[in-house]
Computed example of a mutant assay.
Amino acid sequence: MNLPPPSPDALAQSERLVARLRDLIAREGGWISFATYMGEALYAPGLGYYSGGSRKFGPGGDFITAPELTPLFGQAVAGQLVEIMAQSAPQLIEAGAGTGLLAADLLLELEHRGALPERYAILEVSGELRSRQFDTLAEKVPHLASRVCWLDTLPEHFSGALIANEVLDVMPVHLVAWRPEGLFERGVAMDDAGRFVWADVPASGRVAEAAAALERPLPSTGEYVSELNLASRAWIGEWAARLDKGALLLVDYGYPRAEYYLDSRSTGTLLCYYRHRAHPDPFLWPGLNDITAFVDFTAMAEAGFDAGLDVLGYTSQATLLLNCGVLECLARRAPEDSPDYIRASRAVQRLTGPHEMGELFKVIALGRGIDGPLLGFRRGDRLHTL
């Protein structure tokens, strides 16, 4: 892998996390699940990728999200959030708000539409990102910043709209290996030199139950490896227990189950990101890499349904944005022959192009007490594929 080396300070921070992980593995008898490893690598206080202070988003970080590309993403999504709030309550929560750009874009667009929420709450686990979000909002929307608050935990009760863009993919996943001799959970151990290595144990408990429910046949030779995102299912269940009326709008890259567990995808979807480069090694510089897995949207729909929510729609990001008027937002931005319009139209192409983010990213809406069909799913709904 041709990756730029981290700074000495970054390497020192990673080594502190490595020491923490080694101690954890030793305390657990020599083996931890990959979900535990991923949770530590991303969220260990002061050391994990999302809690350790490194720059993550934008050209100077490790990846670029849709709001970093253009405010047109937020302007279009605002149309869907307006509809949800109109049927529930003028409250909006964003889970995992990144740099705060989506919050700023949404607030400006909702103000333009005369549909500002009474409160815009942000649920953010990273103290460093909270600080960046505060600064972004103070710079971009100082007259609206007083409407924003930060949550430490999920609210006891909530009515309104929730938006989560690229949140599900960074929830810790369990790794499962299907082999001729049975189901195994792939976790992390240490070799004699103290290096992290893969280690498999017979699958048990919730992992074994969830893997068996997929009804994948055991291979006659070799192995088939993939992920189970039990954390995201539990997260949806927690929101369902708190949602009185409203909807969750979840945007991420992923597939319906029939595509997620294709025979050809025999090594899973796990990827790491470092300085805009993707690589497959989650043991490289723990705490300095983002670790992600694609989302099984059928599992998300099942989690919502099992928890008493209605599955209100499922479609591609491109379809949602086009249904919500992203082209109309583009048209009002600037004259068509202006450099600003040309730059913005290129960003829209990235957001909606079938070979870029438009098809890779999907959107699911889960709710209670909301009449459909929702704006973003009125054309091109793919519920039948889940």
Rank of each mutant, 00 (worst) to 15 (best):
L110F: 05
S226W: 01
A26H: 09
L386H: 03
F294C: 09
A241T: 11
G367P: 05
L322T: 13
L248M: 09
R179Q: 13
T298L: 07
F184Q: 03
D281P: 02
R382C: 03
I32M: 03
N323C: 08
N165D: 08
I25E: 00
V167F: 14
D105N: 14
H157Y: 02
W178A: 01
L24G: 00
H384L: 06
D340I: 13
L270K: 08
G358P: 10
G313F: 05
R186M: 10
Y273T: 06
P4S: 14
T319W: 01
L320A: 15
V125L: 11
M300G: 00
R186A: 05
V197R: 14
A241S: 15
D191Y: 13
L327A: 12
G100V: 06
D306G: 12
W198N: 10
G96F: 04
E40G: 07
S264Q: 14
L123S: 05
Y314F: 15
W31M: 07
L320P: 02
L108K: 15
S226I: 03
L374I: 04
L42T: 03
A104G: 15
F196D: 00
Y260D: 03
W285Q: 12
T385Y: 05
C329P: 00
T352N: 04
N165C: 12
G367V: 04
M171C: 06
V363T: 12
A95Q: 11
N165S: 12
D252I: 06
M190A: 07
Q91S: 12
A19F: 05
T269S: 15
T292P: 01
S54I: 15
D296C: 08
D340M: 10
G367R: 01
A203T: 10
D310H: 14
S204R: 15
E223Q: 14
E94C: 02
P4F: 09
A247M: 04
T292H: 04
S264P: 00
A199P: 09
W198P: 08
W31E: 03
V141N: 03
D290T: 10
R16E: 11
V167I: 12
L110C: 06
R257G: 09
W178N: 03
R20Q: 13
Y224R: 15
F184C: 06
P286A: 13
R233M: 13
L129K: 01
E128A: 15
E215W: 04
V201K: 14
L360Y: 04
F305C: 06
L47I: 10
F283L: 07
N323A: 05
S232C: 13
A301R: 00
P45F: 07
T36V: 15
A318F: 08
L11E: 14
